[in-house]
Amino acid sequence: MAEEKKVYSRTKGIIEGAVSGFCPGCMHSTVHKIIGEAAEELGALDKLVRVEGVGCCGLGQFYVTCDETIAAHGRAGAVATGIKRSSPDSLVYTYQGDGDLAAIGLAETLSAANRGENFTVIFVNNGIYGMTGGQMAPTTLVGMKATTAPKGRDPQEHGYPMHMSEIINQLTAPYYIERVSCDTPQHVIKARNAIKKAFKYQMEGRGYSIVEIVTSCPTNWGLDTLKSLDFLREKMFEEYPLGVFRDKGAEEK
């Protein structure tokens, strides 16, 4: 009988023995895991710098093993600009939710993308403000209820969901834009590969990458973990289709 081999280990990118502070079924923890795995596979954990947004992503500060700073709400794109320009050898990523990246940080997000800053944006889009208790986000679906839109998002009053990957795809500078999810093992692997690709591009000095991860929020959607997966696939993927929007690296090959 062949010798037993370990084929899946917990990444060193998250603190040994730590349990995340995220809710059951929340994919923030999945994303933290695959960021660690991607950096570890590239041998770059000791270069990794996390610029953390505000919101549920703030729970990551007790979970990750890399250097980390906390940006003011929405300012991760600006803080990462300052860090990467001052320390070009660092592998810098921002970790932001939809409220952080698409509402309060819209100017910083688009301006960093437009400058083609050489860092990676990890954008977790679950269509709602999680940490503060389920308020409406720029990405909240039409008709979806939120504590600040108790009758559901009404386009007449609130406008329509914002598609950040598509908007950033209107800019010339960004190098790589992909939207992924983490609802199946296959999608998790795809998401990890996307993050790894974005990191690799950054290490090669190619410029701005954003990986948007469409996820669920069982707690604030008011659904159990498995029903939230159904909603994610039926409603969120319809509004936010998965796929590669731009990959200049693949085009150049």
Binding site: T69, A78, V79, T81, G82, I83, E108
Partner: peptide, 8 residues
């Protein structure tokens, strides 16, 4: 905030 990042 860029200054905050750079100084850090």
């Amino acid at each position: 905030n860029m200054l905050y990042g750079a100084a850090s």
